[in-house]
């Protein structure tokens, strides 16, 4: 008997309304593009949750390492000039 398989793992992203960002909904198993879209539709959008679906093989996602969080996501509080409130506007300036 051939080795049983549960197919490949895919990640599903759903856009709830045109113009909004695609948000990760979860994962599915599928063997190819067409099956991935079909399974994502059946599993994650049974009640009008979305108007558009992205699927991609999970193995193609590159993720940051949580150990690097301090370095990667340092808020750079010393670089206050990145924020608009750093700048002094002349008295009476409007719409800026």
């Amino acid at each position: 008997m051939a080795t049983d398989t549960q197919l490949d793992l895919w990640e599903v992203f759903i856009q709830s309304k045109s113009g909004l960002p695609y948000i990760h909904a979860g994962s599915i198993h599928a063997s190819d593009n067409k099956m991935a879209i079909q399974n994502a539709r059946d599993i994650y959008t049974r009640r009008g949750e979305g108007t558009s679906i992205w699927v991609l093989p999970s193995k193609h996602i590159v993720a940051s390492n949580p150990d690097d969080n301090d370095m990667l996501f340092d808020p750079s509080n010393d670089k206050v000039y990145r924020h608009p409130t750093f700048y002094v506007m002349p008295e009476g300036a409007k719409n800026i």
Binding site: D4, T5, Q6, L9, G26, S27, I28, D42, I43, R46
Partner: peptide, 26 residues
């Protein structure tokens, strides 16, 4: 019943993120 199947799949996916495969789960 279709929902229950879907719920099972959401949860299997969540379990798989912990490093166990669907084959092992089944």
């Amino acid at each position: 019943i279709q929902d229950e199947g879907g719920h099972g799949l959401y949860l299997y996916s969540a379990a798989e993120t912990l490093g166990i495969s669907r084959v092992e789960l089944i």
